[in-house]
Nucleic acid binder design. Structure first.
Lengths: 194, 194
DNA sequence: CGTCTATTTGAATGTACTCAAAAGCGGTGG
DNA sequence: CCACCGCTTTTGAGTACATTCAAATAGACG
């Protein structure tokens, strides 16, 4: 079933009876996204938090000089949104784009607020989700502050091997905070030593 | 009263009746921390989440080469812990040190779990806390990835002016991810142009 | 007052960037 | 099915931003 993945995702942290499951599912809307299509663009209002049912998306920031910085890759079974703008109901900072043919389940802010009210257990679920997201980002800050580009590259390969086949080197470089040219040099260096 | 600050902090997001307030307060333990004392050291178990009642603390990571990276400054009215290790019940990655005479209120993991059970509204409170922490860290990642040291310095001055009087330049440099020597150069440069 | 640490300054160095050009690769249309 | 186009990746030369190391000065604290 199309909703199996998201129900399994939720059941990692809270238990829902059948009625609660049905109610939750009734709040979601399904959306297919073609490769290169955007589900959010800088400046738009960010109305949804998105669960990735299949495919992979990428969230990135574009600074005033036109430089892209990848904030996160969102493969199958991940949640993705521009959290700041979703919560504060501000125009989006980020762009979120499918980097492969994908399918997502969308939950609007309005319906999420309703969900919190009707099934308070979801406060717990999203508390844990936010907590994990916070921890991830903090670990990333530590990486960025205390390691060189080469070390960050090595750690990425080790930590997220399954994402590699889905992304280009340019995208990876923008996640690591280096230029594609320099990533290419790093890769060449690795190749020689093995 | 000593608990006014934390109750006000909580009431920003959830409402508690008097009984709930008392129960919550009964779970906390108070602790005075002298300047330079640690409330957590790398490798110890991190049993508490800490609310800063007065003073300022600093959480930092020490890498294998002995380089310090400041993860966060925690002034009055902030919450601070090594979230990863607190949640996963692992030895701590971070060191947390008072950079001035401080006082904190500590809530242990065990008692927090009890609190969630007894007053589920706290799931909401910590959901919002985690959400804000996540957003802050994500904004920081964006800063680090897409701006130069000089720009990061400027933004810090603008965003956290009230913390400046409490910290040394060495500590600020380690937050920005640059050496103290280079921060000194940046400051000299600013001084000339104004 | 003396000691210890923080900050400043400068020279030499290194890491990563910019710009440019060539090579590789993937998708699309004829 | 192949040829072409556009984008990604590689390579290299020159450059810029930030570091390391060292030494002098300034500040904080007992």
């Amino acid at each position: 079933m199309k909703q199996d993945l998201i129900l399994a995702n939720i059941s990692k942290h809270i238990l829902l009876n059948e009625e609660e499951q049905d109610y939750f599912l009734s709040l979601l809307s399904e959306k297919g996204v073609k490769k290169k299509d955007y589900i959010l663009r800088h400046g738009q209002y960010c109305r949804y938090i998105n669960f990735v049912n299949s495919g992979t998306l990428r969230a990135y920031y574009l600074n005033d000089k036109g430089k892209e910085s990848t904030i996160m890759f969102a493969p199958k079974d991940w949640w993705v949104t521009d959290m700041y703008c979703f919560i504060k109901e501000q125009p989006a900072m980020l762009n979120i784009q499918a980097i492969e043919e994908s399918a997502i389940l969308q939950l609007s802010k309005t319906k999420l607020d309703l969900l919190y009210k009707e099934i308070p257990k979801f406060e717990r679920f999203f508390r844990i989700l936010m907590q994990n997201a916070y921890i991830r980002e903090q670990l990333r800050s530590i990486q960025n502050l205390s390691h060189t580009a080469e070390e960050r590259y090595d750690k990425f390969l080790h930590k997220y091997p399954s994402i590699l086949p889905h992304i280009t080197q340019k995208q990876l470089a923008s996640y690591l905070g280096i230029t594609p040219e320099f990533l290419s040099v790093l890769r060449a260096k690795k190749g020689l030593s093995t």
